[in-house]
C-alpha cells in the first residue's frame, strides 16, 4: 500500500476519548480535508499523525512502514503547521526559514520556499515586525522548505489575504504534483482538487471503548 494509512485510530486526551475507530488512507499525491465541529478532534488527529500524541489504539503506516516502529522515518516525512507560527521575534524571516530548511538538510530550498509564499521582500525583516498574516506565511514557508512528503496543516489560512491563499493553493498543488500528501483541517474554503473529506463528527465515541478497540 503506497501513501499514508491510518488504521483503527483512537485518541484519548486525559480522561476524554476524542475519536474512535478512525480509518483513512491517502495515496501519494492525494489530499484529505478534515471537517467537523469545534472540539471534534481535528487538531488532535493532526498532532497524532505528526507523532506528538501517541494513538490510544491503532497505528499509522507510510509506504508500508509502521511509523510507530520507526520514529526516525516518522520524523523525516512529516511537516506540521500548528495553531502557533513559531516565528521568533529576534530572527529575520530569511534566518528562520534557512534554519528550518537546514535542519531538514535542504538549506538551498529556503529561498524558493520564501518566494512561493511571497516573502522574498521580507527576508531581512525581523519576526517582531511581521503582521499575523505574514507570520502565518513565514510558518508555511517553513513547511515548504522542509521538503518532507507529508504536510499536516492545522487551519493554514488563518490571517491570510486572498492573494496569499492563492499562493498557498498553488504551493499545495505543486507539492501534490511531486507525489506529496496534504492533510488540512480548515473551516475556510480552500481549493484542494480531488481531495477526500473526513468528517470527524462520525467518529465520536459511542459509550465506552470496548476491549475490541484496545486489541
Amino acid at each position: 500500500m503506497t501513501g499514508l494509512v491510518g488504521i483503527r485510530l483512537s485518541c484519548r486526551r486525559s480522561e476524554r476519548v476524542v475519536f474512535t475507530r478512525l480509518d483513512f488512507s491517502i495515496e501519494s499525491g492525494g489530499a484529505l480535508l478534515l471537517s467537523g465541529p469545534n472540539g471534534s478532534g481535528k487538531s488532535s488527529l493532526l498532532r497524532l499523525i505528526a507523532g506528538l500524541i501517541k494513538p490510544f489504539t491503532g497505528h499509522l503506516e507510510y509506504e508500508g512502514t509502521r511509523l510507530q516502529d520507526d520514529p526516525a522515518r516518522h520524523r523525516e516525512i512529516i511537516a506540521y503547521l500548528g495553531h502557533q507560527d513559531a516565528v521568533k521575534s529576534m530572527l529575520t524571516v530569511g534566518e528562520s526559514t534557512r534554519f528550518w530548511a537546514g535542519l531538514y538538510d535542504h538549506p538551498s530550498d529556503a529561498h524558493a520556499a520564501m518566494a512561493a509564499m511571497g516573502l522574498s521582500d521580507l527576508a531581512d525583516t525581523p519576526g517582531r515586525f511581521l503582521s499575523s498574516g505574514q507570520r502565518r506565511r513565514a510558518a508555511l514557508a517553513r513547511v515548504i522548505a522542509g521538503g518532507t512528503p507529508v504536510w499536516l496543516l492545522d487551519e493554514p489560512t488563518v490571517g491570510l489575504d486572498a492573494k496569499s491563499i492563492a499562493a498557498l493553493e498553488s504551493a499545495l498543488a505543486a507539492h501534490r504534483m511531486r507525489g506529496g500528501i496534504v492533510l488540512a483541517a480548515t473551516h475556510a474554503p480552500i481549493a484542494l482538487p480531488g481531495a477526500a473529506e473526513l468528517n470527524l463528527a462520525e467518529f465520536e465515541p459511542q459509550g465506552f471503548l470496548d476491549d475490541a478497540d484496545a486489541a
Partner: peptide, 14 residues
C-alpha cells in the same frame, strides 16, 4: 509557548 518545541520534537534529529 511559541510552538517551536513542537516543531523541534518533529524535526529529523532525536
Amino acid at each position: 509557548e511559541d510552538g517551536t518545541l513542537d516543531l523541534l520534537a518533529l524535526a529529523p534529529l532525536p
